[in-house]
């Protein structure tokens, strides 16, 4: 345990190294693309119901509005102060559910939750039907990030129920 003397000064830290491919599976281009140019980000004008959810562990927040007419989601929007996974999830999920009936949208949300917690794996056709959202399957490998997806699925479920 005796501390060793080190007469040579430490080498200064440097910036600038090649990228590491290991995290590519989480940060796939499809996720980064939705993060860079999010769809349906903003606030709906009119009287659409809105909810605000927070992840108490990290402080990230998302607010979500869903417009339902005759049992069908006709428009939706989100505003988030959150990480890339949350923002991309919101962008992909709203893109997928707008135009669906409430029952269909609820099923999509349930499928996304099964995608990241595959106790009973989705069938191939179900997974394929999720489109871009399928990229979220990579979150399985990152348990600490599942909450980032659930922040969105929880908010949209609430917004639909709350409308």
């Amino acid at each position: 345990m005796s501390p060793s003397a080190d007469p040579t000064p430490p080498v200064p830290l440097k910036a600038g190294t090649p990228p590491d491919p290991r995290v590519a599976s989480l940060y796939q281009e499809i996720i980064l693309s939705h993060y860079r140019t999010p769809r349906h980000k903003g606030v709906l004008s009119g009287a659409a119901a809105g909810v605000e959810h927070q992840n108490p562990l990290c402080g990230d927040t998302i607010s979500m509005q869903v417009q339902v007419d005759d049992g069908r989601i006709t428009d939706a929007a989100f505003v988030a102060r959150a990480c890339s996974i949350t923002q991309a999830t919101a962008s992909m999920l709203l893109s997928r559910v707008i135009g669906l009936s409430v029952a269909e949208a609820t099923q999509v949300v349930a499928q996304v939750e099964r995608l990241i917690e595959p106790v009973t794996p989705l069938s191939e056709p179900d997974a394929a039907s999720l489109g871009d959202l399928r990229a979220l399957a990579s979150v399985v490998r990152f348990p600490a990030r599942k909450a980032c997806v659930r922040l969105v699925t929880g908010a949209i479920s609430d917004a639909i129920a709350f409308r």
């Binding site: 590491d20 290991r22 995290v23 989480l26 990290c58 402080g59 990480c83």
Partner: peptide, 21 residues
């Protein structure tokens, strides 16, 4: 880069840092 994205990428490099409030 959001702090959580940072922490995930750092984790893949074997670097443990705290991200959060």
């Amino acid at each position: 880069v959001h702090a959580h994205d940072l922490a995930t990428i750092l984790d893949e490099h074997g670097v443990c840092v705290r991200a959060g409030h």
